[in-house]
Design a protein around this nucleic acid. Structure first.
Lengths: 264, 264
DNA sequence: TCTATTGGTGTTATATTATCAACACTGGTG
DNA sequence: CACCAGTGTTGATAATATAACACCAATAGA
């Protein structure tokens, strides 16, 4: 919680697709950390190549070290390469923007996306950090992951991102229970206005959820037919990805969604 | 130097393509850090998803967070995607294994490779950290990067990796001077036995070197003809990559290699 | 059973870090 | 031109997180 390395790594969260370069003061302002502290932390991370500082503008950005680390991880445990083609199929089937994310510490990391080709579509920020409590992927993951994860999420503060965001612990627990009984998660405008999410969990080889795959639809376009189609497609895609990364669905989950597909 | 975040990030260096999962004691042993400290550091890094711990085996590995960070960096500053096709051409032209690397803190990070199709070839470890002083890419980078980089490298201790590795500061500085006068770097068995390296610098938009591209040939196969061919090819490839990532070669360097190509 | 690992946990002196202030520098504005 | 608001950076000190040590529980092998 109050460890310096955790605080330092928090700073990395502020770099995004839209703002890949940030100044020292800017980072300090957003993170609420003292300028001097930020300066030293960034300096330390620069030593390892995790960030790098532009020589002229003095702006900081993510460094070449993160590419190296990603290569090590990806060659040892290929997932992005496995997930991408499946997402493309899912996007084609549903006609909407889809993405896959994995548990990454106290949040979900968006690791692969495929955007809809429609002009009116949900656009995702690549490499975004997604909260568990406000996203369909997050609920799907929480419902089937190790129970300690839910406890940790409920213990931490939860931001209210839209008027529909559920932040109350008890309500959230009930929603997670519902997802667990249902086999998939549905959330409307809880993370972003006008965005509807439909997600299924991904399982690791121990049979615990390690992430989720999700279909993001503009809320106004969501219909019963689209819902039925998307649920079926996202469950199938999640199954393929689970297999592709060497995981396995627990028997109970297989049974749950089998009845669900028959009913649907 | 003695900051805790730097120490924590050092731990990440021990994960490699061959050993993607490591135990707590193992990491402590290799890094020379106390077990308790390693435990705390890994815990802190796990909060951000930089590493993750297998629930059953308790082994640690690089987490999904590094994939997310790499995506942010790569969508903002695409390099891997730019570099890869050029490397494939270079590998086809030279018939050997090639790779590109960027400055990453106090070392060079291998960010893209293309292996030769010959049965007898140099095989590179994906995402390896390459020392500046013992690799052709390192010398090429040092020769044309900001001078402060060379000073930092000379100030730090340098490992002797083969009987041919140059570790002495004065000799190394002379070698870097030679590379600067020559326009490219050549090194035989200084980083690994029986491996010959030939590298050209990559430049950022300020005209300083930010990395290198290199051809790795089995030493016994190296000939004058192969050398001439590889030098021409690697210089051309480095130029393409430099342009591709928005950099520019200084005028002086353009002139230098122009005469070189004419002579060759 | 006995031994040698493993991962993980306390506790306290110590060393690092947080905080605040001031610094030099830049670019824009009156 | 002086001014101002902004930047990145560097010291000083007080506060505190850390390092180091021994220790524990659990596992695996002989």
């Amino acid at each position: 919680m109050s460890s310096t390395v955790a605080k330092a790594l928090m700073l990395l969260e502020h770099f995004s697709e839209e703002e890949p370069e940030l100044g020292l003061s800017e980072i300090a302002r957003r993170s609420g950390v003292d300028k001097a502290a930020v300066h030293r932390m960034l300096g330390a991370m620069a030593e390892s190549g995790l960030v790098e500082q532009q020589a002229d503008s003095r702006l900081y950005r993510l460094g070449a070290g993160v590419l190296r680390l990603a290569r090590v991880r990806e060659t040892a445990f290929p997932i992005a390469s496995v997930v991408q083609p499946i997402l493309e199929t899912l996007s084609a089937q549903t006609g909407e923007t889809v993405h896959a994310s994995l548990i990454s510490g106290r949040a979900l990391a968006n690791i692969a996306t495929c955007e809809s080709r429609k002009s009116n579509r949900v656009s995702l920020v690549a490499g975004e950090v997604l909260p568990f409590h406000s996203t369909a992927s997050g609920l799907a993951t929480l419902a089937f992951a190790d129970e300690s994860l839910l406890d940790r999420v409920l213990a931490a503060p939860r931001a209210s991102l839209t008027p529909f965001t559920v932040t109350d612990a008890e309500t959230l627990r009930a929603r997670v229970d519902a997802v667990r009984a249902q086999g998939y998660a549905e959330s409307d405008q809880t993370n972003e206005e006008e965005v509807h999410g439909l997600a299924a969990p991904l399982f690791d080889r121990t049979g615990k959820a390690c992430g989720g795959v999700s279909v993001s639809t503009p809320s106004h376009r969501m219909s019963d037919a689209q819902r039925a189609l998307s649920i079926r497609a996202v469950l199938a895609a999640a199954g393929e990805i689970t297999n592709g990364l060497g995981g396995r669905r627990p028997r109970s989950y297989e049974d749950l969604i089998a009845t669900l597909v028959l009913e649907g």
